[in-house]
Every structure is written in C-alpha cells, then in structure tokens.
Nucleic acid binder design. Structure first.
Lengths: 181, 181
DNA sequence: GTCCACATGTAACTGGTTACATGATTGG
DNA sequence: CCAATCATGTAACCAGTTACATGTGGAC
C-alpha cells in the first residue's frame, strides 16, 4: 500500500495531472518508487473516489483532456498517519544475487557480459545522483527542510556506490575463476 | 520469472520436498529471494507439469504425504539459460525512503521510533550474516566453487552495513532537527 | 481415540505489467 | 484535413499475499 502515498507526497509537493505525475515519477520519486502511467491513473481514480484528492475546480474533465489534482485535508492526514505507522521491512529480492547463486551450481558461462552491463548502468546512475547532489545541495547550506531530502539522496548515492564496488569485485573474481562447465 | 529458477537452484543443491524447500527459503536462499509455502507448492506443480522436475520415483504421492522432487536435464538447461540471459535491473522500491520523503512534507512526528526499530533489525541481520561468514568461510581457504557463494554473502553483509550506517545517520539528523508540524 | 504437528493444497484478492483503445490539440 | 503528439483510460494477465481446507501419523 505504498503507491497511493507516493502519489499523495508528489501532489503535496505540487498539484499535477496524471501525465505530469508520470514524468515526475520517472525522475525524482521514481528513483525509489517507480510507477507506470496506468498504475497512476488507476490510483488517482481510487484516491478521488475515497475523498483524499480532488480535481482542481477550474476544470471540467473529459477524456483526452488534462485533469489536475490537489490533495484534500483527508489525504494529508492519511499520509501523516502512514508515515508515522510502524512497518516491517519487506524481505529483500535481488535477481542478480540469485543468478550468482545459480551460477555456482550450473556454471558461470555468459554471466560476465551482463555483470559488466549492470556495472555500467550503476555507474551512470551514481553519476546522475552525484550531479543532483552538486546542483541541489551545495556544501554548507542545507535548509532544515532540505536535510531530509538530502538524506534520501545520500542513500541513493551510497547504494549505487555499493553496487559498483561489488560488481567490480565480482568481475575481478571472474577473471581468476577457472571457467566452469 | 525468478521464483521457478530459485527453486531449481535449491533443488539442484539438494532434492527436497515442498516443506523442506520452504524452510530452506526461510534461511539461505530467502535472504535474497523469499517465498511462502503456497508459492512454492504452486510453482513445484508448474515445474513438474512443464517437465523440468519430477517426484523421486520411490514415492507414490498422496495428500498429506511427503513428496520429494529432483531436477531433470530440461530443468538444469533452463536454469543455465536463464542465468546467462541478459536482464535489466528492476527499478528500486524502498518504502522507508518513501516515508522519509513524505516526512519532509507532512512532518517527522512518530517516525523516529520506527527508524530505531529498523536499525535494530538490520543490526541483527548483519550479525547473522557475519556469523555465517565466520562459520562457512574461514579466512584463507575458499574452495573455488565456494567463491561465488562467498561473494553473494558479502553483498548481504555490505548491504546491511550500509543500512545500519544510514539509519544511524538519519537518527542523528533527527536529534538535531527542530520538531516539525 | 483424540489432539497436535507435519505436509500438501485450494481460493480469493491485490498490486504491478503489458497491450491496446480513445479523445483532444497542434503543425504541416 | 491528416498525421503526430499529448492525455486519459480499459482489459487481460501474472506474481505475490492472505486465509483457509484437508489429509497423515505420532504422542499421550
């Protein structure tokens, strides 16, 4: 039950239409909670039906015509409730680690190329995050309400740093490894 | 499409019944690919129907009676194919980061306690991984086919290390932060 | 012989994915 | 007026989740 809350957060930061939300998810919020436009439209309809958001009054909506939403007090209250509520961490799921474990059984043939590709992707993502950090959080002047956002970005940077390092180690290991079956 | 391959890997490591698999997923493989017993039974039925695995011949199965499976050549081939195939990384999804971003909008009230709880959970997981490392990979004697398994374990250790560090930083931040709305 | 743990399984639901459909607006 | 693009939406499917059902065998 996280997508509706991701949308509420985005709409509180700025009222938007479905497509605008989709684009914003492709950038900032999508870095840790991705969503397609179909998901977003479906969820916007639910949130509106539930009385959490409404279409901006100035507009009468029709298919094919842009419809912007804003958050109602009930929506803000629900978001605050959800943010504070205790939630168990979801069990980890990582395909790459699974594949490495499988490779330990059926052999590593063909894996190396894809590891290189992943390494490249993570390097690029890391560069993107670091660029955002330089731009939005220049050293020495974090406004108090920006501190949390910076913290979230740091998580992204550190995670990508971890993956680039781990993939490099893995590839080095492959160099040594006698080619199995 | 990862669960069937996780099961094939587990069955190649050792032929097992559904419940045994469930228990093994709760331990080792579940650390990066969790599954419930319902998922596992459903998937075992599919894999058997597809000719990838079979019940060990010695047994005639009945409801309530244990049924062990082993991997057929087609299953091993499919696993090797899947391991080598190129796959895009799945977009990141992390509820905790989402909640922090929401907190930047609706305030941090109530969040701190849950962050502490998560920190404790990650510390415990880290300790568990390190215990496994001490036990299964004593320094200086990695057999070649253990190197990949060790690499996977290192990923788990480094990820948990990251989370404990990040959560500590976050909590420190909270100490400083003027309590918002 | 009854209860409990073991073991396998069914059913209904939810969230995410993929493919496609439809209407409005704009540039040529 | 036609094609391309913007914008919203429908439908079918699949994997994961939750709740419950059914059968077996051993402990008491």
């Amino acid at each position: 039950m996280s997508l509706p809350h991701a949308i509420l957060t985005a709409l509180l930061e700025r009222p938007s239409s479905g497509l605008e939300l989709t684009r914003r998810f492709d950038r900032s919020i999508g870095y840790f909670w991705s969503a397609t436009h179909q998901q977003i439209y479906r969820e916007l309809a639910r949130l509106e039906a539930g009385g959490y958001i409404r279409t901006l009054p100035a507009e009468q909506p029709a298919r094919g015509q842009r419809k912007s939403y804003e958050v109602l007090p009930a929506g803000r209250a629900e978001l605050a409730r959800w943010t504070a509520a205790s939630q168990d961490p979801k069990p980890q799921r990582d395909v790459l680690l699974l594949r490495l474990r499988a490779a330990a059984v059926v052999g590593t043939a063909g894996l190396e190329a894809d590891l290189r590709r992943h390494l490249e992707l993570h390097r690029r993502q890391l560069a993107e995050y670091e660029e955002i950090e330089r731009r939005d959080f220049p050293p020495g002047k974090d406004a108090p309400e920006d501190r949390l956002r910076h913290l979230v970005l740091r998580a992204g940077i550190d995670l990508e740093t971890f993956w680039t390092r781990w993939l490099s180690d893995a590839l080095e290991e492959f160099g040594d490894l006698p080619r199995l079956p």
